[in-house]
């Protein structure tokens, strides 16, 4: 029995290692290429590591402005999502009305709709409303697109906060918004952080929405401006592309680590979703 256990454990480890290596190889490429002046397309250790690629892309046009735009765009949209989601989740979680169930079902239904498909009509709508190529319009659309899922998650987290504390506050004459702000939010900030960070990560990587709704090069976020590496000049500089990719990925990597170290992170999300 024990011998068989050991064999099965060894097999499991070996298979896992094999799969792990397949997942790591493409990641290794970006790491090695970013410090290689003559980077090609295959994984190879650079003979003389250099930070020249990073130096070449760290300028206003290539990196600073797109990253800044991305922070404004995704930060603004994630905040807007979060504010609306918290406000919406409170009555859904606390008050009993006939309206709750149909609303929640609609929200859940919306999480399944392919946002990609909505983009053509959204483009048409934005042209008619003169919102094309405006940061405000794009922020509002991005916020709306992630709102259904955010409302759902926030409500799930809020349901975990016991209502008895608020009932005491109500007796003392506090309004419901006061109770939300002073009692519920402080108790569920880890849940808020999880939803906020996941919303932001999703937006940071989103390419299609800003690609469609923003036109001026000076407004484009990092997810779209990365395309300029494949300009009119044929073969792109792979080393610089890799360096830029790393810089662009860095913020979400930090946020993700924060999430998984401090908040139980993705595992919590998996738990919230698995049903």
């Amino acid at each position: 029995m024990i011998a068989r256990d050991r064999v099965s454990k060894l097999t499991a480890n070996l298979i896992l290692l094999g799969i792990g290596v397949l997942f790591v190889l493409p990641l290794l490429w970006v790491l090695f290429a970013s410090i290689n002046r003559t980077a090609g397309l295959r994984v190879e250790l650079p003979t003389s590591p250099t930070f020249e690629n990073f130096r070449a892309v760290l300028n206003t046009d290539t990196t600073y402005r797109p990253v800044f735009n991305g922070i404004v765009l995704c930060g603004g949209a994630a905040l807007l999502t979060m504010i609306c989601a918290v406000l919406a989740a409170y009555p859904l979680s606390r008050f009993k009305t006939k309206f709750n169930r149909p609303f929640l079902l609609t929200v859940l239904f919306c999480t399944g709709l392919p946002i990609t498909a909505v983009m053509v009509p959204v483009y048409g709508l934005f042209v008619q409303l003169n919102l094309i190529d405006t940061l405000g319009g794009t922020i509002m659309f991005m916020a709306t697109a992630s709102l259904p899922f955010a409302i759902w998650l926030t409500k799930t987290f809020m349901d975990g906060v016991p209502i008895s504390l608020e009932e005491a506050a109500w007796v003392d004459g506090a309004g419901s918004m006061q109770a939300l702000y002073r009692i519920v939010l402080p108790l569920m900030w880890p849940g808020i952080a999880v939803v906020l960070i996941f919303t932001f990560i999703g937006m940071w990587g989103n390419f299609f929405v800003p690609f469609m709704l923003l036109l001026s090069p000076e407004r484009l976020p990092a997810s779209v401006s990365i395309f300029t590496f494949f300009g009119q000049y044929g073969e792109p500089n792979y080393g610089q592309l890799a360096a830029y990719s790393l810089i662009y990925t860095f913020p979400v990597l930090v946020l993700y680590l924060l999430l998984s170290r401090k908040l139980g992170g993705a595992f919590a999300l998996g738990g919230a979703i698995k049903g």
Binding site: N100, G160, P190, L263, G264, A272
Partner: peptide
């Protein structure tokens, strides 16, 4: 905190109602 995020189920009104 993580345990608070459990089932994705639509509350059937009565349960959530306060």
């Amino acid at each position: 905190m993580t345990t608070s995020a459990t089932a994705v189920s639509v509350p059937s009104g009565e349960k959530a109602g306060r």
